[in-house]
Nucleic acid binder design. Structure first.
Length: 339
DNA sequence: CAAATCAGGCCGTCGGCACG
DNA sequence: CGTGCCGACGGCCTGATTTG
């Protein structure tokens, strides 16, 4: 993959906290007084790398020796340094960092296109991350590393934590977006009901996914997930990114149609997972809404809303199974609006 | 036109906090 | 007491803009 060779290279050369880096930098300081690494240093960078690893193999740090003992060099890693709770990515050897990067892209894609909660319970957590990491390592031809992920539960746990932090973060950030949409899209629109009753009404039977019909307050049940809060949240979080850096853009080739042939196959849809996540986050935002306007609690725990998520997922799946054309029309319309 | 510089925002990390 | 969540922050990547 292209991402490996450019900035990962540079990143690798840039910071290696507790090892000395090239002391005799022949390059004069061109820019800031900061330790801004010069752009081209490929050969010395490689040398650095080797030196570091060699130091590992010397008995400088007994710890490090232990965790990597018996594993091929490609599959080595740096253990956690004392106060930190998570494994520092930047300290890791290049192969591992590349694999983590690929794995993060993988899980991010899964959140959008497969399931936002791919690893809810513990069994699946390990199984899922193991599979992702092995695949990612293989895709980069780091077969030794792939082999280690299969066998080394300790390393798996550490890296799974790093990767999972990202999925957690995506959900959290997305819920921040939906939090900000509740007031304007659900509570400020003309109504005589008080807030509590309105919230109860919205949450009941997932009413929050339906937009209101024009000129009255009836739900338009022909437009599931057509509520502006759903649309706005998805657009805001997944599609609006500066300079094409939005998540949707990064995974733009993954959008498809339910129809494989014919003109309808060209009409892209939003994936079920993305829409379900949006609805679930809105659900959570509504549930935790406080009359004061602030959220009672920000929590968006995986297991806390998993059943809500699965409800939306099942609903969409059933639409797809029983009314494929309607499903396609709905999801395509959503895609048209946000993309 | 190429190279230097700018600026905005993403990303990794840290540590506090709440919850079971 | 471990673990997940969350705000904050600093470093740095990247497209845009300027400069010669």
């Amino acid at each position: 993959m292209c991402l490996i060779k450019t900035h990962w290279d540079k990143a690798q050369q840039s910071e290696v906290p507790h090892f000395r880096r090239t002391q005799a930098k022949s390059k004069p300081v061109v820019r800031h007084p900061h330790h801004r690494h010069t752009v081209h240093a490929t050969q010395s960078g490689d040398d650095d790398d080797d030196d570091d690893d060699d130091n590992n193999d010397n008995k400088h740090v007994a710890n490090r020796r232990d965790v990597n003992k018996g594993w091929p060099k490609e599959a080595h890693y740096e253990p956690i340094v004392s106060p930190a709770r998570t494994l520092g990515i930047k300290n890791q050897p290049f192969p591992l960092r590349a694999v983590v990067k690929a794995a993060i892209k993988h899980v991010t894609g899964d959140i959008i296109f497969d399931s936002a909660y791919p690893s809810a319970d513990l069994n699946n957590f390990n199984k899922y991350h193991r599979q992702v990491l092995v695949e990612s390592a293989r895709s980069l031809s780091y077969n030794h590393l792939a082999g280690r992920f299969k066998k080394d539960d300790e390393l798996l746990k550490l890296i799974a934590g790093v990767v999972n932090a990202r999925t957690s973060r995506i959900r959290t950030q997305f819920k921040e977006v939906t939090d900000s949409k509740i007031e304007g899209f659900y509570l400020s629109v003309g109504t005589s009901k008080d807030t509590t009753a309105r919230l109860a009404y919205l949450i009941n039977q997932m009413n929050y996914i339906y937009p209101l019909k024009q000129h009255n307050e009836d739900l338009d049940v022909n437009c599931p997930y057509g509520h502006p809060a759903v649309i706005s949240s998805i657009k805001h979080y997944f599609f609006v990114g500066d300079r094409g850096s939005s998540l949707a853009n990064k995974h733009s080739t993954c959008f498809t149609s339910s129809f494989k042939d014919g003109p309808l196959s060209l009409e892209l849809e939003l994936p079920i997972a993305m829409v379900s996540l949006a609805a679930t986050a809105i659900h959570a935002s509504l549930v935790k809404w406080d009359e004061t306007g602030s959220q009672k609690s920000k929590g968006f725990r995986a297991e806390e809303y998993q059943d809500i998520y699965e409800g939306h997922e099942a609903f969409l799946q059933s639409l797809k199974a029983e009314w494929l054309k309607f499903f396609h029309k709905t999801m395509h319309a959503l895609h048209e609006i946000v993309a």
